[in-house]
């Protein structure tokens, strides 16, 4: 079953700005889907329309078969939303915020309190349950928004930049948590600027730019289209004259070299040449996130295509 199906979705804001130009998108039940795009591409508008915070201009949206126009209440029950900005009452306590939110979805107060214990414990906020939200750290506030979105036990969780401004340790723990709940059956859609995040977590990906879907495929298939990668080699000092024939390369300082390698060429020839020159390689890593390279090239291709039209 489709968790989300969008057809011909358009949004023209007052003033004439066309944020979405008729996009089609579908996400299968159980998927972990990333929606990527540069700032102003239309990600938040898309999420805003799905969660009915933004009125659409045209097109259809359905969530688990419920139509946005005709079955809005049922559609809303399927969704848990974690917005980009903190949007809870800063003066309410942590537990009041999550229990009230569950109440809006018709969860009886006693049951909501029981569930609040479960989710606040899972997200490490139980000890803070009686604290006003304004006293929480940024990371805690993000986790609070996840707990709030889960309390009515939605089938689709939508996260808009969930790890923006969150430190690495906390980001990793949030990734683990999201992976766990996805394995338990919750379909997840997230937008992110951290492409590593999409590569680590998601199975499928949609790339949106200037209000249009540039790509909608699986991450595996997308990465398979990558033909070249750049590696950074840390070299023992004193060998900065070494060269690698047949590969684009450059010394960035006296102990670091960047090498571009075609996917089918392999790294053996690189190491053979360096060994012949008595160059000792201390370590090696990818220069950039692979997905980032693809993302940039796809967005550029999309813009060139649009300019040509």
């Amino acid at each position: 079953m489709k968790a989300l199906e969008i057809k011909g979705l358009r949004k023209v804001y007052r003033g004439g700005f066309e944020a979405l130009k008729g996009i089609d998108l579908s996400v299968e039940e159980g998927d972990f889907y990333a929606l990527l795009g540069p700032n102003g591409a239309g990600k938040s508008t898309t999420i805003g329309i799905i969660s009915s915070l933004v009125n659409k201009t045209a097109g259809t949206v359905s969530v688990f078969g419920y139509d946005l126009d005709t079955q809005l209440a049922d559609l809303k029950r399927q969704i848990g939303l974690v917005p980009q900005e903190f949007n809870f009452n800063q003066f309410e306590t942590v537990q009041q915020i999550v229990v009230n939110q569950a109440g809006y979805y018709g969860v009886p107060r006693q049951l909501a309190k029981e569930r609040s214990e479960k989710y606040l414990k899972q997200l490490g906020l139980w000890d803070k349950r009686n604290e006003p939200a304004r006293s929480l750290s940024g990371g805690m506030k993000r986790r609070l928004m996840i707990a709030r979105a889960l309390l009515h036990e939605p089938k689709l969780l939508i996260l808009d930049e969930p790890t923006a401004g969150v430190d690495i340790e906390l980001r990793r723990s949030m990734w683990d948590y999201l992976t766990k709940i996805n394995e338990q059956g919750i379909t997840i859609i997230l937008t992110t600027h951290y492409l590593e995040e999409a590569e680590m977590l998601c199975r499928n990906i949609g790339i949106i730019d200037a209000g249009q879907i540039v790509e909608d495929t699986s991450i595996k298939r997308l990465l398979a289209t990558l033909s070249r990668e750049t590696f950074i080699l840390d070299i023992e000092p004193g060998h900065n004259g070494a060269t690698i024939d047949g590969f684009n390369h450059r010394w960035t300082d006296d102990h670091t070299i960047e090498v571009e390698v075609d996917k089918d060429a392999g790294l053996n020839r690189v190491f053979e040449q360096l060994s012949e020159q008595q160059v000792k390689v201390l370590s090696m890593r990818n220069k950039a996130n692979r997905l980032e390279e693809l993302f940039v090239s796809m967005v550029e291709q999309g813009r060139q295509k649009e300019a040509a039209q």
Partner: peptide, 18 residues
């Protein structure tokens, strides 16, 4: 107005409350 200002009115708008 405070709910609108702090944007926590969105808590109700995304939920199925008529």
């Amino acid at each position: 107005f405070s709910a609108k200002f702090q944007r926590n009115i969105e808590e109700m708008l995304v939920s199925p409350v008529p």
